[in-house]
């Protein structure tokens, strides 16, 4: 299910980072930074902020490399989680809202587009595609909006025009169904 080079490369690179090898971090950068910028940009919506997120994340990858263990999942999943967390934290600081010059225009444009675009690009032979595809449209959309776009429960409820409590329980049920389907 992992694409690109085998995960062992990244595991090895993280171990080298923990020992102070900067070329190992550069290796991770060369391989993943471009995609990580896009992942962050899907959440923070601005290229400059996305680069800021990736910059901070690489420093965190460097300082926390010694904490990575295979029981935390794949090295790649661990690295992407750091970037997603940084991007989400930046959102929670309200930076996206305050620094975007024309908030209204941004909101008017259908920001859900890029979320659905990601769904359409998802590898059709993947288990995740099958299992997400088996969910009701609303549940699938809610889960994709959260993971890809970094939307909160409240934002999802507002955009899908369903009550907050309903949104929460639908997403929960969707997630449970997904877990069972992929188990």
């Amino acid at each position: 299910m992992l694409m690109g080079s085998p995960p062992d490369d990244l595991t090895t690179a993280l171990a080298a980072c923990a020992k102070g090898d900067r070329t190992a971090l550069r290796g991770i950068f060369d391989r993943e930074a471009g995609r990580l910028v896009t992942v962050a940009e899907r959440i923070v919506r601005r290229r400059d902020l996305a680069e800021e997120v990736v910059q901070e994340s690489f420093i965190r990858i460097w300082t926390q490399a010694h904490q990575y263990q295979p029981d935390r999942g794949s090295a790649r999943g661990w690295i992407y989680a750091i970037v997603r967390n940084r991007a989400l934290n930046l959102l929670r600081d309200g930076k996206r809202e305050y620094t975007v010059e024309d908030v209204e225009v941004l909101r008017e444009r259908d920001q859900v587009d890029h979320v659905m675009a990601a769904w359409h690009q998802l590898d059709r032979t993947s288990r995740l595609h099958d299992c997400l595809g088996a969910l009701d449209e609303t549940k699938r959309r809610g889960i994709l909006m959260a993971y890809i776009g970094g939307y909160s429960h409240g934002e999802i409820a507002g955009r899908l025009r369903i009550p907050l409590g309903t949104t929460k329980s639908w997403i929960r049920r969707g997630l449970s169904a997904l877990r069972e389907c992929m188990a």
Binding site: M3, R35, G73, Y147, I148
Partner: peptide, 20 residues
């Protein structure tokens, strides 16, 4: 948490690499 990250990771693979 580790399993959940792996489940959703293919969605990150849909991101086209930006030129940095």
């Amino acid at each position: 948490v580790a399993a959940s990250r792996e489940r959703f990771l293919p969605l990150d693979d849909t991101a086209e690499a930006a030129i940095v």
